[in-house]
Amino acid sequence: MRVKKQKRHRRAVRFYTACFGFRQPYKVLCDGTFIHHLIVNNIAPADTAISNILGGSVKLFTTRCVLAELKRLGKSYTESLQAANTLMIARCDHEQIKNAEGCIVEIIGENNPDHFYVGTQDTDMRKKFQEVPGVPLIFGLRNALFLQPPSAFQRQFAKNSEEERSHMTEKEVALLKKRTKDLVENWEIGDSSDENGGPEDENLEMQPQKYSSRKGMKVKDRPQFKRNKAKGPNPLSVQKKKSRQNTNSMSGKESKGGDETVRSRGRKRKRSRKGKSSAPAES
């Protein structure tokens, strides 16, 4: 039973979030009967109990008129008055103090612009708000809180508003007709100019990126294709260039060594023949 109740609450919260734009933290406007019910049944803390059924963080509000009504009810509601004083005060624009029902009805208005969840035990008020689109209702039964499912009127209103958004308005239809008419006229003008074309038209065709008479639509005569530029090689796969100084020094060393070898090979020992020539002369 508890799982079914959570599914119903989750489904209702999803409906109001999708169709009427409710967002976290959810704002709950409490009247005196709802606050008194929370105190009598020891539902505390109230914000935690309400956040459990809504599935998100909440902020609790009340009004000056609700506080004044609890104060008039006497000593039996002093604890409820103290609890109500701890809540945030929702602004009501009327100068004179009204009864709680009239004050809350005025704040909600025709379409609940502030996206309030209304917490009340008043059955008449709940029936009245079922005929107002986008007003979720919270009430208590003993020590449990419930979120009332959306009424048939609210579901039908959400369906009608969705259908209206899916169709074009009269202004949009008129604008579409005007644009299509201008587009057809421009195409006809372009076809007639092609039939009566001469050398001037050929020169115009040679000019790149020439716009036609459809300047308002920003349409080019010919499509412009963007060519992909050639990309360089992957820098990580390219080998590092060898420095020229090293190569020059190495080549210089080799050349020096080569010269020495050439020189050493080119040198020949000269033998003197004086001794040989002088020996037979003496004999």
Rank of each mutant, 00 (worst) to 15 (best):
L81N: 00
L81C: 02
L81V: 00
Q82N: 08
Q82W: 02
A83V: 04
A84D: 00
A84T: 02
N85A: 13
N85I: 02
T86A: 05
L87C: 02
M88Y: 09
M88F: 06
A90P: 02
A90H: 06
C92S: 14
C92N: 13
D93Q: 10
H94T: 01
E95V: 02
K98M: 14
N99Y: 11
A100R: 04
E101D: 15
G102K: 12
G102R: 14
I104L: 13
V105I: 14
E106C: 07
E106T: 13
I107C: 07
I108R: 01
E110V: 08
N112P: 06
P113V: 04
P113Q: 06
Y117S: 03
V118Y: 03
T120Y: 09
Q121D: 08
Q121K: 14
D122C: 09
D122M: 01
T123V: 11
T123E: 14
D124Y: 15
M125T: 04
M125F: 04
K127D: 08
K127H: 11
K128T: 00
K128V: 03
V132M: 05
V132N: 11
G134L: 07
V135I: 11
G140V: 05
G140T: 07
L141H: 00
R142W: 01
L145T: 02
L147V: 03
Q148P: 12
Q148H: 12
P150E: 13
S151A: 09
S151R: 02
S151T: 07
A152V: 05
F153V: 15
R155C: 14
Q156D: 10
A158S: 11
N160W: 08
N160F: 07
S161K: 08
E162K: 12
E163N: 07
E164F: 10
R165W: 05
R165F: 04
S166P: 00
S166V: 05
M168Q: 10
M168T: 07
T169I: 03
T169G: 15
K171S: 08
K171V: 06
A174S: 09
A174I: 05
L175S: 15
K177W: 11
K178D: 07
T180H: 11
V184I: 14
V184M: 15
E185H: 09
E185P: 00
N186W: 04
W187D: 11
E188L: 15
E188S: 14
